[in-house]
Write a protein that binds this DNA or RNA. Structure first.
Lengths: 198, 198
DNA sequence: GTCTATATAGGGATAGAC
DNA sequence: GTCTATCCCTATATAGAC
């Protein structure tokens, strides 16, 4: 049983995630990783023989797992679809620390190390889009409208992270999420305060 | 007169922009730049004594100039504010090649070389947000609603680029832009086909 | 299991030949 | 003005001491 090493590996994932998030793949040098984790390079290679690539893959697997459990599956499984969508917004806001953290998948999507992690990046967004689309349909939205809204919401979230970071103003993230949520149909017996103003 | 060198520099900017866009700051090595521009490192340093930093700054200045002329100033100056906003969407779609190119400012916003270009990144988005907000107000939208919508649109554009790239599907970009445009008030005598269904 | 030392490659940057 | 050669540093990765 390599349980010790496995536990250690698992404990490192969040730290590694933070570093890759902050500096990107190329910007996250082993020295920085060594400094951030408090482990020498030798130890790092014992735990991740594949080097940075393996670290990123481990981080991506962990992120995927988190989203599957906390976001995608609730969207697909919850009896009350609308509640699943609402939960998604709550989880997402928490996950990105209300806009102070950036999306590693988004970072990897933009730069051209992308080709190395393209499938995982794509799968992540495809899974999310499909789960959200299905939930929106179950909310009573038509097929193509649900696809559109799902796309709008995913793009809106990613863009909110970019903008919050660019303007160095985390509050943008919450506001964007709230407006995206307003585009949802009212959950029964509540009207949307979008158009008619006093 | 160093006009020759200046012209050469100017001609290089778009190539450099493409490289930084594709690979990010850290991923754009001088070898890649040398290969992409067809110039040796020596020549590059003659033209940009400050190295990569100066190259990026030159690219950012060029981008800023382009957006000022084609997007921000029209938004601020055109008598018909709504036409200015419409032009923005057209220009943006063209600029990002309908979603096949990514936004360098967005890339720089996400990774932590960011601190080095933070002001320029911030200024770019601030200028855009302010110009758009002003135009939207002139379209008859209330102050705070215009701020909200301006934020939504900027985030939506950036997010659409991320998503298009992540899913490797450029068509996403156009669809997202179109939906953002639908959130604008109707330009007089045309109704929004959003809510009322057949 | 951890770190230090080291191998090897590639990074940015400059000097100098042409 | 351009490239080649070169400097020095940092990067990744490994080997081996403890």
């Amino acid at each position: 049983m390599t349980s010790k090493a496995e536990k250690q590996r698992a404990a490192l994932i969040p730290v590694l995630a933070e570093i890759f998030r902050a500096y990107g793949y190329e910007g996250a040098s082993l020295s920085r990783i060594s400094e951030g984790t408090g482990l020498g390079k030798g130890s790092l290679y014992k735990l991740f023989p594949g080097g940075k690539d393996e670290m990123v893959n481990a981080v991506l697997a962990d992120i995927d797992d988190w989203f599957q459990r906390r976001v995608f599956r609730p969207l697909l499984d919850m009896a009350d679809a609308r509640a699943g969508v609402d939960q998604m917004f709550v989880e997402v806001e928490g996950y990105f620390l209300s806009g102070r953290k950036v999306c590693l998948l988004g970072v990897l999507a933009l730069v051209n190390v992308r080709d190395r992690f393209a499938e995982q990046v794509k799968d992540y967004f495809v899974d999310w889009a499909q789960a959200l689309q299905a939930a929106l349909q179950r909310c009573g939205i038509g097929n193509s409208a649900a696809t559109d809204l799902s796309e709008t919401i995913l793009a809106g979230i990613q863009g909110a992270l970019v903008l919050a970071r660019a303007l160095d103003d985390a509050s943008i993230f919450g506001r964007c999420l709230a407006r995206l949520q307003q585009q949802l149909p009212s959950p029964v017996g509540r009207d949307q305060p979008t158009d008619a103003a006093p």
